[in-house]
Each structure stands twice: as C-alpha cells, then as structure tokens.
Design a binder for these strands. Sequence first.
DNA 1: GGTTGAGGTGTGAATGTG
DNA 2: CACATTCACACCTCAACC
Length: 256
Amino acid sequence: MFRNENEMISTCAGRRIFPTLEYSINGLDPQKEYSMSIHIERVDGKRFRFGEGKWMELDSKEKITDPKKVFHRDGHQLGEKWMEKPISFDHIRITNRKSRAEGKPNYIYLIAQHRYIPILTIYEGDEIVHTARLEHTEFVPVTAYHNDVLGALKASNNHYTRKDRRRRIEQEAVVQVKKPKFSIESIFHDSSFIENTRNEVEDEAMKSQLRVHFNPFLLWPQFPILPIPLTSKTEEAIPKIEEKENDDEEEIDILN
DNA sequence: GGTTGAGGTGTGAATGTG
DNA sequence: CACATTCACACCTCAACC
C-alpha cells in the first residue's frame, strides 16, 4: 500500500510548515460569509522509527487526542473574498513541546515520529459546509530529516536556506544521479504520478461544485520514495526507483 | 542604493533515551 | 549502541529606514 513519507521538521520553539498549506477555493456563495480552519489529525495509532535506512512501523503508546483547530487570520469573510486569492495558512507553527502550544492559537503540538494529516474545514457561520482531507498532505513530524533527498528538495525551494548550500545540493544531485530524469525535481515531480493523482487533490466530494485545490502541489513531496541519501548510497538506491516506476501495481495503489 | 534588524532555515555536534 | 532531540550557529530574504 502506498503511504506518504513526507517529513516535517518540528522543534520545541515551533516551526512553520513548509511548503505552506495553501488552498484555492471555488464554488462558494460570493455573498455569504465563511470562515476557514485547519487542524492536523493523527492518522493512526502507529509510531515510526527510522532504522537501517527505512521507516519501521511500531505501535504507539501515545493516546490520540482531539486536534487543535487553527482559524485563518481573516476570520469571517464573504465568499467572494475567499475565492479572490489563494488562502494561505503560513502562520501555523508546529511544536513538539505541549506547553509551547498552550495559549497560542497558531501553535499546534504534534508528537514526533507519528503520522498526521492537515484538514481544511470551511464554515458558513458556525455550520461546517465542507472538510477537505487530502491524503496527499500526510506527513511525519521529525526533529531532523531522515531522508536526504527530502531535505534537499525543501532546501532548494526554501529561500531561507543558504544559497551556497542550495547550489551544492543541486550539483551533487546532477553528479550522482546517472539519468537526468532523476534530478531532484523529477524525483518529486514525476509527471505521470501528478497526472494520476491530480483528481484527488482537486477535491471532488462536493457535488455542489465547491472545489478545493491544494496549491503547493508541486512542492509537496509525494512519491513512493525510500530514503535516498545523496551521498554514498544514492547510486544503490536508484534502481529501486526505476523498478517502482514500471510497476503497474504501484500505480494502482497510488490511485487508491 | 546601502544598512540594519527581524524572522526564517538546515547543519552538525553534543546530549538524551530506550 | 543506534536513533532521537536539543541547541548554537551561519546565512538567507525582506521590509523598514536613512
């Protein structure tokens, strides 16, 4: 079964989610008032441990608690305002220290090494009119990246990262990855995969034509990758990706 | 146009934990 | 012992200011 292996750095001080959770919404009533919230839900009762180059699934002793809802800063707005431009939740911070999140509406406490999924909720007044749960956006909070390629992708797309580091990462990827199609870009932006899963991202649960688009799609790593260090193990790992690319069953799993 | 400070990032060494 | 966490650090962009 295909599962996301996206990692999100979580610190005790709190760190932003990158890429930012950003949605475009169509189909709201322009003259009605809406508000939006995000909560990050535990996906399962599992805990993940990284050993011998891969994630291992263990049972978690941590209880699943009600997730904290973080409302969009714009509060209540007319539908036409929400649809005017992308809705960004860049003010959300995740922390691995419970006390840090208390009393701070934009801080969310997440337990490291567990799987979570962000869920967008749209309210008309106090009534929930839609929730968008995009499997695509599942991630595991970690205190340090385990997957070097993932770190490289985020570093290359994040302007806060040192320029020389971004350049070095890109050069290493070109030198060590034999075929051009396995550049950092293509590892995460496999075109057939994007085509096959785009419908999931354009949430079609709404027969009423209300549609939620997840904007940073191309920045959100979603590929059945195994940890592929850019250093010594890179060349050994590449054949595994090639096998998966030609594996029809994997395609079906992705679609499901 | 140049400078400065705020806010943000990943890195790597040290330390903690099971 | 291996993996997870913490923390100081260097460096980035951007906006405000002169």
